[in-house]
């Protein structure tokens, strides 16, 4: 029957100080859509909760000097949805984040929390990986930047060092005729968890794909960046042969488990199916932009 301490600092330094000082007994609270559920289920019993929503930088959406976006780690999906231009530039990132949970959950849940929760099935992460997003983290030893795909290291595990807090995501500037998309396979139509997730980010020059990044969720212990699938798409007209090759690369990259949500065979096959469907949506959007 230990008491839970709660702090809501207004500066990042205070947040990092409190979080690091608790030496693993603390948990970060952004939207709380994972943490509070886990506490209720008795899975975690933090001695200290550090609420990061009062830190301005973590709740901000900014344009970078280079023309990209910086998204605070605690920004909720609903807030990001209301941004005037983000969803036009990164529709795939936004749709991945806002497939999570219900309308009520989307008002709280953040991409930062989704990343730090470490689920291989996290719906917002493939989109960020495909986008080439960089995660900024700050800890007792200062600030560092790492590609998003290097943050998760296994189910429920991340590469963040003790005391480090995720600060923001930086998305690069976008060339003309670029876009992205995210699709997931779920047995239901909503309120479900991805059996397979696939994000594709593309730049098109007419009918030719000039740049691509592909990411898969829920098919391995972490969200994957699938470089072979991207290679199969680049400098092609996204013809059937190229799509077959990229789909095969996705299936080959899968290292899933048989569990209550899907079989190995099913996930491996579906990864390729989703690659084709997601690529078609992203290409359509890119040509339109």
């Amino acid at each position: 029957m230990t008491d839970i301490q709660y702090v809501a600092p207004s500066t990042l330094d205070e947040a990092v100080g409190a979080y690091a000082a608790a030496k693993g007994a603390a948990r970060i609270l952004a939207g709380g859509t994972d943490l509070l559920v886990q506490m209720r289920a008795g899975m975690v019993k933090p001695g200290l909760i550090v609420d990061i929503k009062k830190v301005a930088e973590l709740s901000a959406i900014e344009k970078t000097p280079e023309g990209g976006f910086r998204i605070g780690a605690a920004v909720s999906g609903a807030v990001l949805e209301e941004h005037p231009t983000f969803g036009k530039v990164w529709p795939g990132v936004l749709e991945g984040l806002n497939l999570i949970g219900s309308t009520q959950v989307q008002g709280r849940a953040s991409a930062g929390g989704n990343l730090c929760n470490g689920s291989p099935a996290a719906d917002s992460i493939p989109g960020l990986v495909a986008a080439g997003a960089i995660a900024t983290v700050q800890g007792p030893n200062g600030r560092r930047n790492i590609p998003v795909e290097q943050v998760p290291t296994g189910p429920g595990k991340t590469s963040l060092a003790p005391g480090e807090i995720l600060v923001s995501f930086t998305l690069p500037p976008r060339p003309a005729h670029s876009s992205d998309a995210y699709l997931r396979m779920i047995p239901r139509t909503e309120m479900d968890i991805a059996v397979v997730g696939c994000a594709v980010s593309l730049t098109m020059d007419g009918d030719t794909c000039t740049a691509a990044r592909v990411s898969l969720g829920a098919v391995a212990p972490t969200v994957l960046l699938v470089e072979d699938a991207a290679k199969a798409l680049v400098l092609t007209k996204l013809d059937d042969a190229s799509l077959d090759k990229a789909a095969a690369a996705c299936s080959a990259a899968c290292n899933p488990i048989d569990d209550k949500r899907g079989t190995i065979a099913y996930r491996t096959k579906v990864a390729g199916v989703l690659l084709k469907r997601t690529t078609a949506i992203a290409a359509e959007r890119a040509k339109g932009g």
């Binding site: 047995p187 239901r188 909503e190 479900d192 569990d259 209550k260 949500r261």
Partner: peptide, 28 residues
């Protein structure tokens, strides 16, 4: 279409909640 109890090798229900025990939602 989707509802079933999934038992693990230890004889325990592996999906004791509405996330993985898939009853239809309105949009289904």
């Amino acid at each position: 279409l989707n509802e079933e109890y999934i038992y693990n090798k230890d004889g325990k229900v592996d999906n004791p909640g509405f996330l993985d025990y898939r009853m239809p939602v309105c949009s289904d």
